[in-house]
Write a protein that binds this DNA or RNA. Structure first.
Lengths: 131, 131
DNA sequence: TCAATAGTTCAATATTTATAAACTATTGGA
DNA sequence: TCCAATAGTTTATAAATATTGAACTATTGA
């Protein structure tokens, strides 16, 4: 099985990000990953808003998020843990990602949040939220 | 021939806008429409960045922009003139549209531009730009 | 009424997406 | 070491979308 592809920071494109986030399911998945402390797994999303998703479909969504450069997937034992690639995204795409998720009414993790006009005060985290 | 459908302001959705603008060709078309004073026609885009587009393809792109609520098409004689639906978009989707076009490196018309932090000074228009 | 121009619709083809089923990978026992 | 369990990927194919040439509709001016 070929290793998971993650584009280099320079290869992350507006088009790819927009494509990935133009699907509301993927936007929601990305939102939750970006907010979560525990780096969720793919299977954590088998039901999303009372809606069941097949595993293979979910896997494709993750592939698209990963290959757009939005997330990084790391194997931890039998599962893959997914992180937002905040560091690689914030500078070039922070505004875009924030605006897209805001328009959907979704939350963004602190790491991408970082409003530049304010002098960076500690955000009030919202960790224990039902999923 | 059925009349052109324009969604009501309330029916404009994030998902529809993102879908429409996730195609870089449509994003560019919208950008030019939003910046232009003359309400361009469909045929104005038959060549875009040295790339020829078939008329039927272009017509579909316009239909998608129109049905997403981004533009309004009005018949003026033999042609259709296309306007950005600024008024309907600015409040709910201004930030989104601005961020998307900015990320693509495209311009946005003043009407959608309207940066809220600054006290609304007259923007320096850039009208005569090669297309 | 006809020709010219602009745009839409149709139909055929090509591309993309969704998903069940089969596969690979890792781990923790027996 | 081998097996079962769990997590995720790949493959095959069916369904949905996109692209585009060709035919059509609409408007205008001669």
């Amino acid at each position: 099985m070929r290793p998971l592809y993650h584009p280099s920071k320079e290869d992350i494109s507006t088009e790819g990000i927009l494509y990935a986030l133009s699907d509301p399911i993927r936007a929601q998945i990305y939102s939750e990953i970006s907010c979560s402390e525990e780096a969720p797994t793919c299977s954590n999303f088998l039901t999303l808003k009372n809606h069941k998703l097949p595993k293979s479909t979910l896997c494709q969504h993750f592939k698209i998020l990963r290959e757009a450069g939005l997330i990084r997937s790391e194997r931890k034992g039998v599962e893959l843990r997914n992180f937002s690639r905040c560091g690689d995204l914030k500078e070039r795409f922070g505004d875009l990602i924030r605006a897209v998720l805001a328009a959907y009414g979704l939350k963004v993790g602190e790491s991408v949040q970082n409003v530049p006009s304010e002098p960076k005060k500690k955000a009030v985290a919202e960790k224990s939220r039902p999923r």
